[in-house]
Each structure stands twice: as C-alpha cells, then as structure tokens.
Amino acid sequence: MAAGGDHGSPDSYRSPLASRYASPEMCFVFSDRYKFRTWRQLWLWLAEAEQTLGLPITDEQIQEMKSNLENIDFKMAAEEEKRLRHDVMAHVHTFGHCCPKAAGIIHLGATSCYVGDNTDLIILRNALDLLLPKLARVISRLADFAKERASLPTLGFTHFQPAQLTTVGKRCCLWIQDLCMDLQNLKRVRDDLRFRGVKGTTGTQASFLQLFEGDDHKVEQLDKMVTEKAGFKRAFIITGQTYTRKVDIEVLSVLASLGASVHKICTDIRLLANLKEMEEPFEKQQIGSSAMPYKRNPMRSERCCSLARHLMTLVMDPLQTASVQWFERTLDDSANRRICLAEAFLTADTILNTLQNISEGLVVYPKVIERRIRQELPFMATENIIMAMVKAGGSRQDCHEKIRVLSQQAASVVKQEGGDNDLIERIQVDAYFSPIHSQLDHLLDPSSFTGRASQQVQRFLEEEVYPLLKPYESVMKVKAELCL
C-alpha cells in the first residue's frame, strides 16, 4: 500500500493539533497551500530580480507567473513527485505547466533550498508574528487579574506546605514575570531571523556568478533584492546548502521555554482548584465526569500541561538535527523538520489560546482563602504575639514557653481530632496574655502579614508589564474561544 493518505478522510490519521486544537490561522501558515504558494512567490521574486539585473526574462513571463501564483494543481504535483521522487522539481514542473512561456526560467540558477529553506524562514517569521500578540493578550488578562487582587491576602506555599502570606495578585505576578520573559525572547528570536537568500547549491553562489558572467556586484544585488522582497532586513552571508540548523534550535528553545512557563502556571491553577481557592472557567453544560456528576475538573489547565510537556520535548529534535548536518548538509534534517517545526508552533498556539481562555474567566473564592488563612495564621502570628507581650512588660522566655504549650495543644486538636485551630481562643482565655487581649485582632490582621506584596504588584505592572504590552494595544480586544 502506498504511503500517505487522504487526510480529510475519517479513515486516515490526522494530527489532533490540526484537527482538534490549533487555530485556523496557525494551521494555514503550515498548510501545503501556504507552503507551495510561497515557493511560487519566491520563484517570481527571483525572476523579477534577475530581470532587473539584466537576464533575458520578459515582462510577459513575469506576468504569467504572477497570474498563476494561486493556480496550484495539487493532484498534478503529487503525481509528479511520485514520478520524480523530488518535491521541488515536482512543483517546478507543475508551475511550468500553467506558465508555459515562463517554464524555462522558473528556478533559474537556484537549488531546492532556495524555495525550501527560504519558505521555512518566512513561515517561522509569520508563525512567530501570530504567537506574539496571543502571548501579549494572556499577559494582559493576567495583569488585569493581578491588579484587581493585588491586596487580597492568601496563604503562600513553599514545598506545598503553608508559608508566609502573600497576595493573590502577587502570586499571579510570578506567572506574568515568566511570560514577559517569554514574550521578550519570542520577539528577540523573531527579529534575529535572517533570510537564507540566493546562495546556490553549497552556499557559494557559483551558479549565479556564472549567470551574471562573473559580476560579483550583481550577485550581491540579486541576494539583497530577493531578501528585501521577502520582507527581511538581512540575509546570511555564510550558508551551506541550507541555512544553519542552529536557527531551528533557537526558535524551538524559546517555544519550549514558553511551554515550561505555561505548565507551571496551569499546575498552580490545578492545585488551587483542589484547594477550592480558584477555578478555571466551567461552562453551564460542561460535564466533569461521566460517573461523578459533582466533579469540576480543571480540564483546560490539564490540557495545557499535557501539550506543554510535548512542546518542551520537541527542542531535542533540532538539537540532534543540527549535530548531524555533515559538511554542507545531509538530508537527516528533512523529514524531522517537516514534523517538529509545525508541531512546535501548533502546540504553542494551542496552549496560548487555551491559557487566554482560562485567564479571561478565572474565578476566585475569597471566603475559602480566608478560612485557610484562619487555619494557619495563628501559628504564624506567634512571633508577633511574643513581641507584643514583651512590649507590655512580659518575659520573652516565659511567653515563648506559654505559646509553645498552647500551640501544641491547638495542633493536637487540628491533627488528632480534625478540629479547627483554636490557638487564639486559648490565648484569649489565658490570664497571662490579658495585657494584649485587646491587640489580638490587630495582630491577626492578614494584611499585616503580606509585606509589600501589593506595592510590588503595582510597581511591576507599571514599570515592566504595561510598557512591554504597549506595541500590542491594537490587538488586545480579541477574545479566545474554545470549541473543545
């Protein structure tokens, strides 16, 4: 049975990233139509530049190519590739079939990587351009969430054990800070992308030097003109047959890092959902379990974690691919890159769409948070109580021993009897502590235990987050809708 299948058929496997999760716009960027249309555009740009620099290419040939950029006979191309065992030459023939007058000058002087690699770089750039505003929107939604809850005390956790208090907004800023680093890295790697350009079979530009009869300047002009037509500021000066596969490492490393950030955020949300302090959106008709109707599973956060793990592992592909590119190139890269580049971007696209949807509907339960604080705060307040007693004339050592005994009794009630923490009640009825009984409410005010959390939130948002989001103001209103 021949390899390949009808990918629109229910009898043929289709990647869930495309069929179930990723956005239509990201799927289109990695589609065959987008790819092969870009090949034709690159052939047109090459012909236009070659004509401008004096090669015998007519206006009629150029116009014929322009008129057929979208006229792609995919069936013919597939048949040609089956016959020739070469995808680029299959599309040269297919393009030439609908451009008979231009057929002889299509791909003039070029090698397969002229269309293959340059198209990949265009796709990487455009895919990054799709991700950047999506990530900015996630940051914006979380920034709104953090600002609104900047002063809401909550129990902090280290080692997932109760620690000092923080605020809900401050905790959210930990998430935002990681995503801001990801946004900066995505922008950097996007701006650092260079075009492969017009380089020939081993990167020496020998074929173009021959076409222009040894004119170095025209060869350099050709490279520059096509690079500018493709919208790049610069091209690699040095290439082998391909652009260095280190570029793929750079791009997928940034995406993998984004995956790590999203995994951490969504894990926190899942843990908070278990504590009943916070939940992701839950639709009115949504079913959490087929057997347990009360369940409210954090399905979206779980999906993000599941896909983020996949995204983090994909960076190993370009690392290994770059390491086995012998001399000017081997074909070890080809099949692998067809999979890992598309999957990385479709996965990143999915987790950003999902995280935006989550961040637009996060639900906080202040009463649950308050109750958990009441359970733990008495123990945390013991040092403040000791200091207040010393100020009232008591002995630190005597007070410490009193607190120690009462704390152990209260802990026994919590752990052995399943009761509430009654340390404060014990202190309130103990005559030894009568000098500070009137101060206990103040000493137990949760806001006095959150330090500068709310001020940190305000400063972080104003100095770091809002300036970073400013270039994306025009796209901030787009909502994230999930079908599944």
Score class of each variant (00 low, 15 high):
M476S: 15
K75F: 09
E283Q: 15
Q161F: 01
A143C: 06
T204D: 04
T330A: 11
L209I: 14
V29W: 08
G156F: 00
S407F: 04
Q455V: 09
K284S: 11
Q320L: 10
E283I: 15
I339V: 13
S9L: 13
C483W: 08
E220N: 12
R194G: 13
S454T: 14
I106E: 00
A163G: 13
E277S: 03
G109L: 01
D216N: 14
T450L: 06
Q51C: 08
R374Y: 06
G231Y: 08
W43C: 00
M389L: 09
T119H: 13
L346W: 07
Q285C: 12
E473H: 12
H310L: 09
A136L: 14
T347W: 04
D32A: 14
F236T: 07
E417R: 10
K233H: 08
R37L: 13
K218A: 11
S261K: 01
I176S: 06
L53V: 14
C340V: 14
G116F: 02
V475I: 13
V168D: 00
V168C: 07
D129P: 00
K391T: 13
G361H: 15
A291H: 02
I139Q: 05
I123N: 07
T158Q: 00
Y21L: 02
Q286D: 00
S257Y: 06
L142W: 11
L355A: 07
K470V: 10
E148C: 11
E213V: 14
F433Q: 03
Y432R: 06
Q184S: 12
R404G: 08
L179M: 11
F345G: 07
F449R: 06
A256C: 07
S253Q: 11
F95C: 05
S289F: 01
Q356C: 15
F36D: 13
T52F: 06
A2V: 06
A2L: 12
T166V: 08
V262F: 06
E213C: 14
Q205K: 02
E473T: 14
F145N: 08
N336A: 12
N336T: 14
S289D: 01
A392V: 11
L272T: 06
H107Q: 02
L130A: 11
V254P: 09
L319H: 03
Q164P: 03
L341K: 14
K233E: 09
C304Y: 01
A78I: 09
Q221S: 10
R404Y: 10
C98D: 11
E80T: 11
E473G: 14
K134I: 07
L84C: 06
Y432H: 13
R337F: 02
T167L: 00
R303I: 01
Q416V: 07
S448T: 11
G259I: 00
T202S: 13
P471W: 15
Q325E: 03
N68T: 11
R270E: 00
H91N: 11
K229C: 10
A206R: 02
E360P: 03
Q51A: 07
A163I: 01
L183Q: 09
L461F: 07
A3V: 10
A256W: 00
S323H: 03
P471I: 15
A273H: 13
R338T: 04
Y466R: 13
H159G: 02
A230M: 02
C304E: 05
G361F: 07
R426H: 10
E376A: 05
Y432G: 09
Y21F: 13
E280N: 00
S306M: 00
I369R: 04
L331C: 11
Y466D: 13
F195E: 01
I351F: 05
H310R: 12
N118M: 00
G288I: 05
V29Q: 06
T321N: 10
A388S: 07
C99Q: 03
L331G: 04
L165M: 05
K233F: 11
P281K: 07
C305Y: 00
S407P: 01
P318F: 03
M76K: 12
W326G: 04
Y21P: 04
E213N: 11
V414P: 05
Q161R: 04
T166G: 09
Q210M: 10
V364D: 05
L179R: 01
Q285L: 12
T111Y: 00
Q61H: 13
C483Y: 06
D332Q: 00
E302S: 03
L121N: 11
L211G: 04
T244M: 05
V413E: 14
A411G: 14
Q356D: 07
G8F: 15
I238T: 07
N297F: 00
L211W: 06
L165S: 04
H7N: 13
M389F: 07
G288Y: 02
D398E: 09
D445L: 14
A431Y: 07
Q63M: 13
I339F: 12
Q408E: 14
I403Q: 05
D349L: 03
S395I: 02
G116I: 05
I385Y: 07
Q416G: 11
A110V: 04
F282R: 09
L484M: 15
P24Y: 14
F195V: 06
A291P: 03
S257T: 08
L275A: 12
D422F: 12
K82E: 12
I385R: 01
A260W: 04
V465K: 02
E213W: 10
S438W: 09
C304S: 09
E213R: 14
D430Q: 11
S395M: 09
L311R: 01
Q320H: 07
L482D: 10
